[in-house]
């Protein structure tokens, strides 16, 4: 009887350790945050830049690390040094736009169109920056 309890305990502990190991080193490597599955609030590119310019701290509380959908006119399409596609959305202020890095392997929107980009807001440099983004729709 005692033996059985000891064995049962050992099995429980081993399973626990294996589970933790799997979650920390395997699951977390293959399961990355994906904005496609997250609920996001919609904001225009002009409003987003305005929010960060008028009060960066408050805007950080509101947007940082959250999934947001930004609607704006596509200004530029480029590639970064790792080969990811980057999109710049016009905000109305020529010195401060929305800079988005897309998830790899996505189809491109047409230049000059109004689009909605969904991504994780990582903060404000000269532009408001979105990471891990996807193009949700092209409006025009």
């Amino acid at each position: 009887m005692k033996n059985k309890i000891v064995w049962a305990l050992i099995i429980v502990v081993v399973l626990g350790v294996v589970n933790i190991w799997y979650y920390v080193f395997q699951y977390s490597k293959t399961h990355h945050r994906d904005v496609a599955n997250e609920v996001a609030t919609l904001v225009t590119s002009a409003q987003l830049v305005k929010d960060f310019q008028s009060d960066e701290k408050a805007a950080n509380v509101k947007y940082l690390n959250k999934a947001i959908e930004v609607k704006g006119e596509l200004l530029q399409e480029n590639k970064d040094q790792s080969g990811n596609i980057t999109l710049t959305l016009k905000s109305g202020d020529p010195f401060s736009n929305i800079f988005c890095t897309l998830q790899p392997g996505l189809p491109l929107p047409v230049k000059g169109s109004v689009i909605v980009v969904k991504g994780v807001c990582t903060g404000f440099l000269s532009d408001v920056v979105l990471n891990n983004a996807i193009v949700v729709k092209s409006v025009e």
């Binding site: 977390s28 490597k29 990355h32 945050r33 940082l64 690390n65 990582t122 440099l125 920056v129 990471n131």
Partner: peptide, 15 residues
């Protein structure tokens, strides 16, 4: 040089 800390991407999401 300016960087946003949240723009650093790790292989492991938990990390």
């Amino acid at each position: 040089f300016s960087v946003l800390i949240k723009s650093f991407r790790f292989e492991n999401q938990l990390m």
